[in-house]
Computed example of a mutant assay.
Amino acid sequence: MTTPPAHIEIDGVPAAEPGLLATLMSGYGHFTAMQVRDGRVKGLGLHLERLDRSTRELFGRGLDGDRVRALAVGALEKAGRRDASLRVYAYPDVRVAVTVAEPAPDGPGAPQRLTTAEYWRPAPHIKHLGGFGQNYHREAAARAGFDEALLTSPYGEIAEGAITNIAFWDGTSVVWPSAPCLEGITMALLEPRLGSVRRPVTLADLPGFRAAFVTNSRTIAPVTAIDETAFAVDEDLMERVYAAYASVEGEALRPGA
């Protein structure tokens, strides 16, 4: 590992632990994001599995789930929260950072308009740091008046949103694009509960779908447009999606709770 600089300042104030801050600033690592409600997390086991798997791939050793849980519980206690948006980051030497922020609003997300961008994330199966490309396209989408960027290949195959997964409704099945993407925890929880299928989806296929929705750790929201293609909000579909997610029991962060 590169020797950390001897002195680091943040906003003109010397950092207390330059070595740790140098690690955090390296841009090499991964994370998972979760919503905590009353000390419980939907799909906690999947979050812990994701952290361990990606840590092994990036750093050659695992990340113990009990360690993650203890750090998360400690951070929540120090923040005085049982409801929160919580992120766990893993860095070189398997250093772990936890952030605690305001919880995302509960309930259905606001309808979203998407615009397409020719970009696929590198190593998309990892929720990695340094996502300049996806952030660039997401910010460009926002400046153009859209809610999210939809990432596609140069040939129009759809993969995922910049920070979301996307699913389509053909009137019979919920269809998730099969292109390489980050399989989000919300997607992983919904997929088996909706009787979903995966198959290639291209921009040319869009007029054949009746509806679409996006998911991530903060929201599940209907899509009303992708570029010039408009979608109606299928209320029956969305009620089914929300009910499927609501049926998932949260897992306690604190063992035995």
Rank of each mutant, 00 (worst) to 15 (best):
R95K: 06
S54V: 13
A149M: 06
V94Q: 10
G156S: 04
L58R: 14
E49D: 12
V68G: 00
Y136I: 02
H125S: 08
G145V: 13
D64R: 14
E57C: 08
D83Y: 13
L150W: 02
E157T: 02
A97G: 12
D52L: 03
D66Q: 15
I126E: 04
L71F: 11
S85W: 10
A110Y: 01
R82I: 09
D64M: 07
G62F: 09
G45Q: 13
D66V: 11
G145Q: 09
E148T: 14
P103E: 03
L151N: 00
A97M: 07
G107N: 08
A110M: 12
H137V: 00
R40A: 05
G45W: 04
E148P: 02
L46Q: 13
R121G: 00
L129Q: 10
R69I: 07
R138I: 00
G65M: 09
L129K: 05
A141G: 09
I163M: 02
P108D: 00
E102T: 06
P108V: 01
E77I: 02
R56E: 09
D66K: 13
N165A: 14
P124H: 00
T152V: 13
T116G: 10
A72C: 08
G60A: 08
W120V: 13
T55D: 02
Y91E: 10
R53M: 02
T55N: 09
T55V: 05
I158Y: 00
P105L: 11
E157Q: 11
Y89L: 15
Y119L: 04
G109W: 05
R82A: 11
V94G: 08
G45K: 06
L76W: 07
L58C: 08
L63T: 05
G131F: 07
V88M: 14
R61D: 14
K78F: 02
P124C: 03
P105F: 08
K78M: 08
G65W: 02
Y91T: 11
P108S: 02
R69M: 12
Y119P: 15
L150C: 07
R37E: 11
L63M: 09
P154T: 15
G130N: 05
P103F: 06
R143A: 11
E157I: 01
N165E: 04
V100Q: 09
A75R: 13
Y136G: 01
Y89E: 07
G109K: 03
K42V: 14
H47N: 05
R95E: 12
A141M: 14
A97V: 15
L86C: 04
K127P: 06
P122C: 05
G65T: 03
P108C: 15
D93M: 12
A162Q: 03
A142Q: 07
